[in-house]
Write a protein that binds this DNA or RNA. Structure first.
Lengths: 300, 300
DNA sequence: GGCTTTCTTTGACTAGAGTCAAAGAATGAC
DNA sequence: GTCATTCTTTGACTCTAGTCAAAGAAAGCC
């Protein structure tokens, strides 16, 4: 998977990493905390409009016990309110109290002032350049940090993704979408199929499936990316992973279909080397059919 | 000084800051430390090819006592050697021992592997985009973090800068440079002059002077940037600051001269609105003379 | 309905990070 | 030569951050 990376690129990233973490980031932390431990300040910020301890634990990568205690401390300070959600009473949901909200506002104000001070010393042109560079870097770093893994289609993350996919296209297709049209887990596993899930920070943010259509032909289905991870180029990476899986399973060609309304998807398939072909299935949702010839498996 | 900054730019920078510090930076720290406290790991890395405790204290913003103890701990582990420099026996200079060097090498290897892993999941084109975006962001952030301050020309930082300037051009001018040709502190202070020093992370990295030439005319001299802070656009900022100082002191026009070999400087002056004029002084080092009309002081 | 898994809480720790003040040794300034 | 300043060291702390294990309460799975 890892392609050979030039030492120059590595050096550039490390330099930036060092510079940013030590200088800018450290500054930010220092101001953010002010009269409160940094851990608590971050936690307050991350709670935002309410979050379960489970989510917070994942997002901040904290020990469960440690988090539990910090939440209790914030509760004691009157900044946070904890409740038990109706749907699962093992969970605890933390929310900001009005006082907590004030505190977070103040944090935000300080961090804004810091960023403003930094940006203010640049002229407008350079500021625009910086914003553009930062947006590009963030997009690419997020994409780079996302891993695409092969998982069992019956596993929870896979099911969550398929459910998200179904809900998403149900809303976008004028005729709606019947979840019965989804692949069955047994079709997309083993020697003839695959199910890939993309993870960002441990959370599933996209998926894609490969199943057998004919001895030499695989079919790609359900390539989907959660809204919060779109416009990063992730769909291409998933597609790429599925093609590699197809090659590894001995397919010489992959096919796929798309709905008429999914015009961006069609453009992407074309850009990725797919050519439109006649209808090959009876999928009632499909309006366009594509095919791509795959390279033979290489030795390495 | 601070120009009005759009909320959008502020938001973009803060988002990036958060993303980078929490995700990428935190990862790096985690790997860097491994079986050693993070503080010590950073310190080892920062010592590099030798540094005085004074420098280290500044660069890492550590308490003097804390640093002293950490150095002693590294010394006890055989990773660092401390010596007293001949020129100032209050100072202590820390250097890596061979064992320390091995340790830092190992740190580097790990951090490289981390960066490589991240970059490796991008294709070559995107990797190039990321490297370019990162380089631009670093350059602009460094520039933004540099402050240009008016200081007494007799103060230590100012003298250090002038000495650096003199040494630099002495090496670049074919005929050398006589430090007697530098401005006198009293010329560049008070109501008719100014001396600016640019600071990056507390270290002076550039300077520029303004003195009186005639009742309505100021002269800009010794605009200089240390080698490590070049190509950021800092000279322009210093020049800009000097022009503002000139306006504030009531000058309607500023002049300056440059040596024949300083072609980049000439290009910059032209780009900043200076026009070439006939010789106006007897500076033996000068080959080109420039002038710029200044706006009248505005009310704000 | 029993068994496994998930989520949180509590107890009991450890070590790293950082602060503050006092004091001693050299320098620099006048 | 005196006096203020700079730089480092030492002592004496505090507190944050983080780990590990055990256990109880719910929920999910056949």
């Amino acid at each position: 998977m890892t392609q050979s990376v030039s030492a120059q690129d590595v050096r550039a990233l490390r330099r930036f990493n060092r510079y940013f973490t030590r200088r800018i980031g450290a500054l930010d932390d220092h101001y953010l905390g002010q009269d409160r431990p940094l851990g608590e300040a971050r936690l307050l910020f991350e709670i935002g409009d309410g979050a379960s301890l489970r989510e917070l634990r994942g997002r901040l990568r904290l020990d469960a016990g440690y988090l539990s205690r910090m939440v209790r401390a914030l509760q004691a300070q009157g900044l946070v309110r904890v409740s038990v959600p109706a749907e699962d009473s093992r969970l605890r949901v933390a929310e900001l109290t009005p006082a907590g909200r004030v505190e977070v506002e103040e944090q935000n104000r300080r961090a804004d002032a810091l960023a403003e001070g930094l940006l203010g010393s640049l002229d407008e042109r350079r500021r625009g350049e910086l914003t553009a560079a930062i947006a590009a870097a963030e997009r690419l770093l997020r994409l780079a940090a996302i891993t695409v893994e092969s998982v069992d289609a019956a596993a929870r993350d896979a099911r969550d993704c398929l459910a998200g996919y179904a809900a998403d296209i149900d809303a976008r297709f004028p005729e709606g979408f019947d979840p019965a049209a989804l692949v069955r887990p047994d079709e997309v596993s083993g020697d003839s199929g695959a199910f890939l899930v993309a993870y960002e920070e441990g959370r599933p943010v996209g998926c894609g499936a490969l199943r057998r259509l004919a001895p030499d032909t695989g079919e790609i289905r359900h390539v989907w990316v959660r809204p919060e991870a779109r416009r990063l180029g992730l769909a291409r990476r998933i597609l790429d992973g599925l093609e590699r899986a197809a090659v590894a399973r001995g397919y010489g060609v992959v096919r796929l279909d798309t709905h008429a309304v999914l015009t961006e998807a069609q453009a992407m398939y074309r850009a990725c080397g797919y050519t439109e072909i006649p209808r090959y299935d009876h999928n009632v949702y499909a309006a366009h059919w594509f095919e791509k010839r795959l390279p033979r498996p290489s030795g390495d």
